[in-house]
Structures are given as C-alpha cells and as structure tokens.
Simulated assay, not measured.
Amino acid sequence: MQHVESTLGPDVPIIVWSPRDGARFSLDELAAYLAEVKDRISAQLDENGGVLLRGFDCVHTSGDYQKVLDVVAPDLMDYVGGTSPRKVVNGRIMTATEIPGSYSIPLHQEMSYTDNSPDRISFFCERPPEEGGQTTIGDMRAITRAIDPKVRERFETHGGVQLCRNLPLPEKVASRPGVPKTWHEVFATDRREEAEKVAAKSGWRYEWLDDGSMQLWQEVRPTTRQHPRSGDDVWFNQVHIFSPVSALKWARLDGRTEAADRLARALEEAPQLLDHMRYGDGTEISAEDVLHIYDVLLENETPVQWQKGDVLVLDNILVAHGRKRFSGDRSVLTALIQHAH
C-alpha cells in the first residue's frame, strides 16, 4: 500500500487516506494507484460510509478532480429535479451549492425526495473558507436508532412522504422566502412543454398557477431505504428541510431574523407558495414530529474541516452531509455518482 489509513474520530464514519511516509504523487500516478485499489475504496464505502483523500497535493482544479472521478466514480449523473441552486463547472461537476454563507445546511442525503437519488456523492475542496464552512457529516445508522420509534411508526403507517414544491418564475424569486429554485433551473429549460415532459417522465404531478409558477408534487417515497450491500435500513428523506415549521427554526438558529420573519408571514398569508412535505397518504405531518427529526439530525452532526485539495466520497444512503455557515471565499465542488451499488 502506498497510503496510510486513519479516522477523523470514533463517531465519524470516514476513512482518511494519506500518502505513506510523505510520498509525493503526480496526478497521473495518483489516478493509476486509485485504479489499482478502487475495490478497496468501494468496500470501505459500503462498510463505513466515507473515504477522504487528503494530503496528496496533486488535485488542484476541477479538471484534476474529474481525473480522480474517472477512476473511482466514472458514472456521474445530472441534477435534474434537484432543489439546491448549483452551477455547472465542468461536465457533470458542479458547485456544491450557491446557497449563501449566511445559511447553514442541515444534514441530508442527496435527492432523497426522488426515486433517482445518487448512490454516492463526492466533494472536492478547491479553496477552503476563511472562517467556518465545515462540511457536516452524520452516520445515518446511528441517527435512525436515535429517532423515536413511535415517530417512525407514524411515518410508515401513513405511507411515507411526498414533497410538494412551488417553482417560481426567475423574476419572482426575490419576493420568495429562502433560496427557491425556478422551474427553469429545475428542468434546465425555459419552455413549459419541455418542463411538462420531464415531469411526466418522472411521474410527477404538476399545475401551472396564475403567477406563472409551477406547483409540483414529486413521487411518494418511503421514509427509509435499505442499503443493497450492507442491508442497513436507514432514515432517508428530507422532511426536516422542506417542512415550513423546521425551515423557520433553521432560519432562527442561523440568526437569519429577516428571513425568519418573511417565512412566518408567508406561512400566514400564502402557505401554498412554500415548499412542504406531507405523508404519502396526503395527510399533514405534525410539527412535533418534524421538529423531533430536525433535532435528532442536528444533535448527530460532526463538522469536518476542509483542507485544500481534499476529495471526499460518501455513500449517499449511509452518510448524510450538510454545511456550517461561513464567511469569506469558499469553493467546494461536487459530483453525483450513480450505478455504484
């Protein structure tokens, strides 16, 4: 082995790979080495949930990151239907998010509100932030055990969860609370008929509202998902992000007072224009249960401080990710990995 393995702590489900004895790698040498040991990477992702390549000092740009991905995760996917604002950087490599640094991001598994979620997700630190901005990590096996069994039972009894979104026109975004995505961004088109085709193909119900926005009901999803290799059945949804009551708590914890006030007014005046989640049978989820889920995830997050050139790969079922607030410049890129299980 040309690398050594360590951990970030007893409760962090990530194995850190670093060069053995300070060995130096060129980018081509690292790619060749990773090709030799990619089965070991895959096995560690299935068992632990994450692998962090750190200290190799040869991954500097999105092109370098792509070369690493070509070896360890050659089958990348697009972000059609995703909720976070992102920019394409290179091929299917994107910015991790365009959500401002004044926002934290709660733990979540990528696109767990759709049937087409990635099997794994990768991140690359091009520039670490000046202050804050750690990526948070959560072991979903431990988090699932921490959720009140009665709460889990209620979700299962009511047939899972469904995300309902309101996707505005670009000129209406500034008037909405939070950081909403337009239907142009979600469907990568400015033509209604094209957006309708993608929605229909995905099995999503939609309605055009008088203000030009699209009301979109995505597929009903189970609340948990079983890992196909480890067999672990873990919590797998984003009810704690898309329920207005938890979004309000999130804004207040971040200190985003103005955003919290706008959200509170929208809840009173136009709740139909806010993203929300319901049980799969269409009934409302209680605020108490939503906030219980939010609190469990918050209590189980572990911050990981970025170093320049880090490449992180996570199993998207076993490990959730999020972000701390930050100030200054921060550049973290991401890629969504399919057909890995």
Rank of each mutant, 00 (worst) to 15 (best):
P128K: 07
G178C: 09
L298M: 15
T257S: 07
E258P: 09
G255W: 01
R262Y: 01
N116Y: 13
F123H: 05
R145L: 05
D139A: 06
F242W: 01
R192A: 09
E5Y: 14
D315L: 03
H184W: 04
N90Y: 00
M1F: 13
S62N: 07
A264K: 14
Y79R: 11
P168A: 08
I285T: 02
E299R: 15
V245R: 11
W250G: 01
T189D: 00
S213F: 01
I14A: 05
S6L: 07
L107T: 13
V311T: 04
P100Y: 01
V12G: 10
W306D: 00
M111N: 12
M77F: 07
G9L: 04
G203L: 03
M140C: 06
T157E: 15
A146Y: 03
A199V: 03
G63A: 15
Q238W: 03
D289Y: 13
R176N: 06
P74N: 11
W204V: 08
W250P: 08
N48I: 07
G22E: 05
E153T: 13
L52A: 12
I147C: 05
L274G: 14
A270R: 06
G82R: 00
P85C: 00
S230Q: 09
L333W: 02
F56Q: 05
L263I: 00
L263T: 00
D233E: 15
Q226K: 15
G138L: 04
E130A: 12
G133D: 03
Q238M: 07
D57I: 03
P180F: 00
T224W: 12
I317C: 08
I293P: 03
R24K: 15
P10K: 08
Y33P: 06
V37Q: 07
T257L: 05
G81A: 10
L274E: 11
V311Y: 00
P85R: 01
Q2Y: 00
L30T: 03
V71I: 11
V319T: 06
A31Q: 11
H227L: 06
F236V: 04
G22S: 10
P13E: 14
K181V: 05
V151C: 11
A200M: 12
L8P: 14
Y279Q: 07
R225T: 04
E299H: 15
D210C: 02
N237D: 00
L267C: 14
I285S: 01
G132H: 02
L273A: 08
